[in-house]
Design a protein around this nucleic acid. Structure first.
Lengths: 190, 190
DNA sequence: CATTTTACTTACTAGTTAGTAAGCTGTCAA
DNA sequence: TTGACAGCTTACTAACTAGTAAGTAAAATG
């Protein structure tokens, strides 16, 4: 028996990757089991249902996001740097690796995923929007970024743009995503 | 035998609706067959494979878009009205009906759909981007809209925003999508 | 009227899906 | 050293998946 170190985390990592890659309806327990060299029952041992697995992936992501934004490495950045940090998550960890946002992937097939998962996605989306809204408000008050309209709407616009942009990058290449990020910044220049 | 009038078109309509609702991996031939009150073999008679069906849906959509933009009802609109027409497609026919864009739905699960379908999605996305880029260029030249940066990038941003915005509307309600459209317009005001 | 074609149905297949029940084995604590 | 438990495997199920082959009834065609 080849012992896999920290199986639960390994399964979560793989599930997260598959979610961003193929969507919730695009992967199966068999995919995960094969990749890990175990039987599908081993996955069910850690996560009784596929809904449980999906929920666990999103919950972990939510906790990670909360940790990041409350960590001094991000908290103590300037307003501009905070925005750059947020945009870099999308470019470095997603667009350049052909992945899409967890939120986007699951909202696209929102009506064909379990209810518990829908709720988690809702919460994650709200939390990210909330942080972005706050950062935009502070940045504009400090005079380092500029935009018309309500911060809450601008935050929704930027998150939607990044979400849709990652999907566009799938079909039209990651260069297109970088162009979109460039335009987001152009639209925020003082 | 209850004869269904124009079955092929009825199947395409239902498939298009299901694609926007649940994604390519989220519906089956059985769903369509049940809804139409026929057997799944009847669907295979019209569309041999699921890939064929998906491709036909996107091709029809591409032709429809081409017809629209070349029709005088759209062609002869003012620059502002053209943009409004484009945004209204998303609000009236998608957000307010809980649907997402065909392009967005299939790009989110791009890596788990057949190749022939990927190509069609690519073409549709390019064609829509191209029209939007042209419209933005003309509008700015005419002085009725304003934005910084390249029209090609602004077009990519707006389409990404709409695509991501529809998905956000799924989880957070269609009011949020209207807010995003408002912000798009705010960002284009002279 | 005979024949072909259209639009199906019936009946099936092989593969995949999430999920389960029971058994096995190495580790660790008492 | 015994027993509990974690972490699996083996072996299975029922439901669903896309897809197929053969047959049928009605309409179109010649």
């Amino acid at each position: 028996m080849v012992k896999i170190e920290n199986s639960k985390r390994t399964i979560l990592n793989l599930a997260e990757s598959l979610l961003q890659d193929k969507g919730f309806n695009g992967f199966s327990y068999a995919h995960i089991a094969n990749e890990l060299g175990v039987k599908n029952a081993a996955i069910h041992y850690h996560f009784a249902t596929k809904e449980d697995l999906g929920v666990a992936v999103v919950q972990r992501y939510r906790e990670r996001f909360k940790l990041w934004i409350n960590n001094s490495r991000v908290k103590d950045l300037s307003h501009e740097e905070k925005l750059d940090w947020f945009l870099r998550i999308y470019t470095d960890f997603r667009a350049d690796k052909g992945k899409v946002c967890l939120v986007g992937s699951m909202e696209a097939e929102f009506n064909s995923i379990p209810e518990g998962l829908q709720s988690e996605v809702q919460l994650l989306h709200k939390e990210m929007l909330d942080w972005l809204r706050g950062t935009l408000t502070e940045g504009r008050d400090a005079g380092v970024i500029a935009f018309n309209g309500e911060p809450v709407n601008k935050a929704a616009l930027i998150m939607s743009t990044l979400q849709g942009g990652l999907q566009m990058a799938r079909a039209l290449g990651s260069k297109k995503f970088h162009d979109v990020v460039t335009q987001i910044k152009v639209d925020l220049l003082v």
